[in-house]
Design a protein around this nucleic acid. Structure first.
Length: 536
RNA sequence: GCCCUCGUAGCUCAGGGGAUAGAGCGUCGGUUUCCUAAACCGUGCGUCGCAGGUUCGAAUCCUGCCGGGGGCGCCA
């Protein structure tokens, strides 16, 4: 790797001038501006003060030594700005990248091993089965699934799970709504007045019992949610029923586990968990109410005991909306109280998704069902659109705009680039142009700025994937793939692969460039769960 | 009141210690005998909420304030 070569060359130069490397190690970054070279280091500025040196002078000295014995591909080393050491590389470094990409291929390029086979569960969406999931849920669905794909590419073994809240007060409220509707009565206070529930109620022929009706309805609704998820190509490994936990001994066993640790006490007829030693500002939480029912927390702790101690996941990532922030401290404390290391549970809070018409609410009935939007714009547009934002950003969706722009959606911009690649392949076949083996092709002919820009983007993909993984930020892949499309369209426009006046040797080199770009699009789009069509 | 989170171009958002802060949409104009114009090129667009602090360097980290959103149940 070129980066490693440059870092060790810098380390050697630093040692030669008698300056200790910075505590954080030698950093190398890609400058934002082309004129600052291909790779840039700030070592001189980092170390100058401690070494009692002037940063620019130190940088100049380093540059001189590096120029005297330059690492491979280094054309020039310049000192710019306040003391940056900038490496200006020959295009040959990008030709080497091209070789790496096509050799690694779709399954190998931009893979990492940092996950070391760790088993991680990502639980996401888990919306209550009281109605179809809406567009906001869809945003989190894209996130959770793409995060899983990114982590898989980094060596994690990922399980995707949907926690089905098919018990408790809201299920009884749902059952009450079903029963009322079935009898032609108005939906009771706090019930679910949606059209979906109304339609569902006409099919109910079970007992006149809110719990039975609620569970029946929830089961049907989960079936529909599953269908909605399939429509955006999300395939959960497990739909885990909360009722199954509560129906089993799991909650009692969990409470017993905590009681054994001396953390459970009774007061006012209720059972409490002492959470003070585990970072919970509230210090104590009710786990069993005075009426004898366990609280949601107790069930949730049992569920997490199941995730960690029964099913043995090394790491659990819960993707929650910011409106569940209030649950974080109690769950994290309870999990730690069970003796599970705190860093094994990650809770990613996504900011709220709203429509320009206001916040979506299932009860209020102003939510837009995910499948309705997907029917209009397609699953690929839905997924790319939702992955263009960080989940740390609260987003406002203008549905009218999304619909009207669907023809110029970023997803088509990216997919169109991929179809152009396929098209080049088809035309090559028609014209009998055969791509020769890479070893016999002179990649050195790739000198056009458009060509180099494509290769620069491709060279960044491994870093992007790694960062997307460690920061749990799959949207970085979306941003990257759009940039690759931008550069590929530029190349396509200015650099004909075949045609009049194109040297056959250049055609060969460009065919390999196109193949490398194809790998980039394939990898990037796969990570996002977006299809890579051959034609549109 | 306390806690969390966000505030970047007209709009939707990237960038989250590094050099002159970016993209898409929207505005206006241009490009096609050749691999699909779902494309390309040009054009304008900013007190990075405000004020301090840390740093060689802050949109980025810290503190306070302002503004938006969310949360503070023996609900789930």
């Amino acid at each position: 790797m070129i980066r490693d070569d440059l870092v060790s060359a810098l380390a050697a130069a630093l040692a030669a001038v008698g300056v200790d490397p910075p505590d954080k190690g030698i950093q190398l970054e890609r400058p934002a501006r082309r004129e600052h070279g291909d790779w840039s280091s700030n070592v001189a500025m980092m170390t100058a003060k401690k070494a009692g040196r002037n940063p620019r002078e130190l940088a100049t000295e380093l540059a001189e030594r590096l120029r005297a014995d330059p690492p491979a591909h280094v054309a020039d080393v310049k000192v710019e700005g306040g003391g940056f050491v900038n490496f200006h590389l020959a295009p040959s470094w990008l030709h080497a990248v091209l070789g790496d990409i096509v050799e690694a291929g779709d399954d190998g390029y931009a893979t990492h091993t940092i996950g070391t086979g760790e088993r991680v569960m990502i639980e996401f969406v888990s919306a209550n089965p009281t109605g179809p999931v809406h567009v906001g849920n869809g945003w989190f669905a894209s996130y959770g699934d793409a995060l899983g794909r990114v982590m898989e590419r980094c060596g994690y073994r990922v399980q995707r799970e949907y926690y089905v809240n098919d018990t408790g007060g809201q299920i009884r409220a749902l059952g009450g709504s079903i029963l009322a509707r079935a009898k032609g009565e108005p939906v009771p206070e706090g019930g679910y007045a949606s059209a979906f529930v109304k339609v569902l109620s006409s099919a109910y022929d079970g007992p006149d019992d809110v719990t039975a009706a609620g569970r029946w309805a929830a089961e049907h609704i989960v079936g529909f949610i599953r269908h909605q998820m399939e429509a955006v190509h999300i395939d959960y490994d497990e739909w885990y029923s909360q009722a199954s936990i509560e129906d089993s001994e799991a909650v009692g066993e969990t409470v017993a586990l905590l009681a054994d640790k001396g953390l459970v006490f009774e007061r006012d007829g209720a059972m409490w968990l002492r959470t003070a030693d585990f970072g919970d500002p509230r210090q104590e939480r009710v786990i069993r109410k005075a009426d004898g029912d366990y609280t949601y927390l107790a069930g949730d702790l049992a569920y997490h005991r199941n995730k960690f101690m029964v099913r043995g996941f090394d790491r659990v990532i819960n993707v929650w909306g910011a409106d569940h922030h209030g649950q974080v401290a109690s769950l994290a404390a309870g999990v730690e109280a069970m003796g599970i290391a705190r860093d094994r549970l990650e809770i990613r809070l996504g900011q709220m998704i709203s429509l320009t018409s206001g916040r979506m609410s299932k009860r209020a009935g102003n939510a837009v069902d995910l499948d309705d939007l997907v029917d209009e714009i397609g699953p690929d547009a839905m997924r790319l659109l939702s992955l263009l934002n960080s989940i740390d950003q609260s987003v406002t969706i203008d549905l009218d705009k999304v619909r009207s722009e669907s023809k110029e959606s970023p997803v088509y911009y990216v997919q169109y680039a991929h179809t152009r690649i396929a098209s080049i392949g088809r035309v090559a076949d028609e014209r009998g142009v055969v791509r020769r083996p890479l070893e016999s092709v002179d990649l050195g002919l790739l000198q056009h700025e458009r060509e180099l820009e494509v290769l620069r983007s491709l060279s960044e993909l491994p870093d992007v994937v790694l960062l997307a993984c460690t920061e749990r930020a799959p949207h970085k892949v979306a941003t990257w793939v759009r940039e690759l499309a931008d550069r590929f369209h530029g190349f396509y426009h200015d650099c004909y692969v075949m045609g009049e006046g194109i040297d056959p040797e250049l055609t060969q080199a460009r065919l390999w460039l196109v193949e490398a770009a194809r790998v980039g699009f394939k990898v990037g789009l796969d990570l996002l769960g977006v299809s890579a069509p051959e034609s549109m």
